[in-house]
Design a binder for these strands. Structure first.
Lengths: 187, 187
DNA sequence: TCTTTAAAGTGATGTAAATCACATGGGGTA
DNA sequence: TACCCCATGTGATTTACATCACTTTAAAGA
């Protein structure tokens, strides 16, 4: 069976068996339990994670102690604090496991090494960066354009699995509304 | 005097005179008058613009006919519909001149040619893409974290020039509040 | 220059969502 | 089993902002 990461990378660039083994040798494999964290606000992040199995949230706590979720991570998604990872500054966000998780990660140094030796992978990450930017742009567009109810419905349509896996208060936190408001806009 | 685009590019990579001339030969120079447009919603964008002089807005009109501004462009900023440019799909946004503008643009094809012949420029744009993504991430973070008033004050602090150049109703549209609300949260 | 249009402030009113408060029911754990 | 915590739903109240309406002032166009 093909490795899930290979399948994922080959959606953008193609790899020989040897090339994929070489890529994989730059990653480490870890497991985390529900409620454990990957990243804590304030640390300088030097790992980028890829989710093999499980569900995570990236979030921050505001001045009133309220949690705001920026992103969920599930199978085949990358997750890290991108600003901290790229600029090597303190992370503004934390990342916690919502379920037991199995992950691969690559360090900043290993990513540099890998892209230096394998230009293809630079193209892969450049493409990923473009896609990520477009997704963020569209989220802002949606935040400005759509009502809370419309955003909720779009999310439900786009990621129906999410609603079976995470508590609704987290969906509310992702959408930027209170738990009560989310509860009230159901069918 | 150094060309402003050269100064801009050399903030990330360094160039010889010959290299810069080569880069510049892939751009075209245009002027536009206030109220003219660069991009209209629905077209497939194949140009990326760099602002030499002037001020522009990228925006879309929602179902109620209300305008939402996603980004302003001023001197030394890049502006385009990024999704349309990268994926060659229909643009969701329009771009208009708020002042008379002087711009450089590079077409999709010329950018491909240029990066193919000059790997440095690929690095330049990859870096720009990362920075752009981080800026968007931080805008979402700010939208979730800060009150309207706080966002207004941060914008005022970060881009004081903007407030002398664009009408307040556009600031309101960028912040996602009504003209009246913005007016009421002044000192 | 005069005329018209756009910008910006301000009051009155309506509305969506936050907040506070409480009730119910399921899941995990001792 | 019995307990408690957590998730969720729902009512009552408060609040921030939208909307409508009108005025003043400045700027753009003929």
């Amino acid at each position: 069976m093909t490795h899930p990461l290979r399948k994922h990378i080959e959606e953008i660039i193609s790899l020989t068996d040897e090339e994929f083994d070489f890529v994989l040798s730059h990653f480490e494999h870890i497991k985390k339990r529900k409620h454990q964290y990957l990243i804590q606000e304030g640390e300088i992040v030097n790992k980028e994670y890829w989710v093999i199995q499980g569900c995570l949230k990236s979030y921050f706590i505001d001045d009133n102690g309220k949690e705001h979720i920026l992103q969920f991570g599930m199978e085949n998604w990358w997750i890290t604090d991108y600003e901290s990872f790229v600029k090597q500054v303190k992370s503004k966000t934390s990342i916690d496991c919502i379920e037991d998780c199995e992950l691969l990660y690559i360090t900043f140094e290993n990513r540099e090494k890998l892209t230096a030796k394998m230009h293809k992978m630079e193209r892969f990450w450049a493409k990923k960066s473009k896609i990520g930017r477009i997704a963020l742009q569209n989220r802002i567009l949606s935040l400005l354009k759509n009502s809370t109810k419309e955003q909720y419905e779009q999310l439900l349509e786009q990621y129906p699995k999410l609603f079976q896996r995470v508590p609704k208060k987290m969906i509310a936190s992702y959408l930027g509304v209170s738990r009560e408001t989310l509860s009230r806009l159901n069918p």
